[in-house]
Design a protein around this nucleic acid. Structure first.
Lengths: 220, 220
DNA sequence: GTTCTTGGTTACAAAAATGTAAGGTTAAAC
DNA sequence: GTTTAACCTTACATTTTTGTAACCAAGAAC
């Protein structure tokens, strides 16, 4: 279930929104002012934020601007209809979409779905058992622990993950790593595997890469 | 249309296989012996290989072993029914699946589909317009040209790609790169963008990252 | 126009990644 | 058991990546 945070000062609208979201399968939490808004967001880690731009004492843009220094959570701006340059303002400071009041509930839901979908699609994350893998950043997360793989380590680990059901030969890994451009010491692969193993050990995956002598490696 | 190479010495079986594949929407090419098999494979770049293990003068295993030093193309081994330790042999040397003769055409087709699907899913490749992006390796290919991005460059480029429809603020990119762990010179981002731009220029993407002064960047 | 802020470029030094070499360990073959 | 080949580990040097600093360019504000 995905968590949506509503940041809105009008109690009636807040309740309306909350009902709408909960009736459609979302977990809705609310915030009626900007006191500690940043802290609340970082603590609650919502999957999406509906942010009213007109809350007194602090502009939505400023909050968004500060938020973007800490988090990339998707944000949909909610604005008054008469507000000018709404698009420019909201999109400029890092909002993912915007909607004007009064809004059509169905359209709002569609926008939310679209933003959430894009956010999930674009996270570039791969899940393998209890590991969350970010290929581009080389980050492997397990629960609260994480390791950072270098490019070579990531290439090896990806290859093993992608051929889990069988033994992977050293030749295959060499090809994947260096494409046989020039001769590279056979041992370079061994060293890279060794480095990968010791990092995986840090997050509790000891012996996950098994050696099959004279044949290759296999993920267990 | 996906190209499948059949490596088989029995002419009747070859023809049968070819018909079967062509009738099911594949482009089938054949090779009846191992003369220059490696060269042919590297030239034709098939999406999958059906390899008969019993061709005279050279064992299928040896070919596969040599092939794996050059290419990671998926291979399905075709073997005689009476052959022992077929699984161990074929899977050991880097085959993705195997099937025994006489085979059921429908099962063979299913196996082919499964291997191709896994191969595509696992390529870890992302397509954007005419760019082929390998996140883990940091390789961006355009036609015959390619550039290799460093981790930071890849992070920035991915982020821009994933938010194509709007302006991305510098704060967002800073968060994505360094997660505000410690203070990092604002200029570090500028420098990384500059490096990314000059690499993209090499493959003909000049000015693809537009600066919106005081606001951020946008992919054009 | 001039000034000033923002972003860009280049060069450089620090840090990280990576291949190599030397010696160690393990397990298969005999 | 002994030998040997295959793989592992550690340390080190080279190369690559990366942040910083100094200076440059462009465009917004006046």
């Amino acid at each position: 279930m995905q968590k949506i945070m509503i940041i809105e000062d009008d109690e009636i609208i807040t309740q309306e929104l909350k009902d709408l979201l909960q009736n459609n399968g979302y977990l809705a939490i609310t915030l009626t002012n900007f006191n500690n808004a940043l802290e609340e967001i970082l603590k609650e880690k919502p999957d999406l934020i509906l942010l009213d731009i007109n809350i007194p004492y602090m502009s939505g843009e400023l909050l968004l601007q500060n938020l973007r220094k800490k988090s990339n959570v998707p944000v949909i701006m909610v604005t008054s209809n008469n507000q000018e340059t709404v698009e420019a303002l909201s999109i400029s400071y890092g909002a993912d979409d915007y909607i004007t009041k009064p809004y059509n509930p169905n359209i709002l839901l569609l926008r939310i779905m679209a933003v959430l979908k894009r956010s999930n699609m674009n996270s570039n994350k791969l899940i393998y058992h209890d590991l969350e893998i970010n290929l581009g950043k080389g980050i492997i997360k397990k629960d609260d622990k994480e390791i950072i793989l270098t490019k070579n380590e990531m290439i090896i680990f990806s290859y093993l993950l992608n051929h889990q059901n069988r033994i992977v030969t050293r030749d295959e890994l060499m090809t994947d790593l260096w494409n046989n451009e020039e001769f590279i010491n056979d041992n370079a692969l061994t060293v890279n595997i060794s480095r990968l193993r010791s990092k995986l050990k840090e997050i509790g995956y000891d012996n996950i890469i098994e050696t099959r002598k004279k044949v290759g490696y296999i993920l267990s």
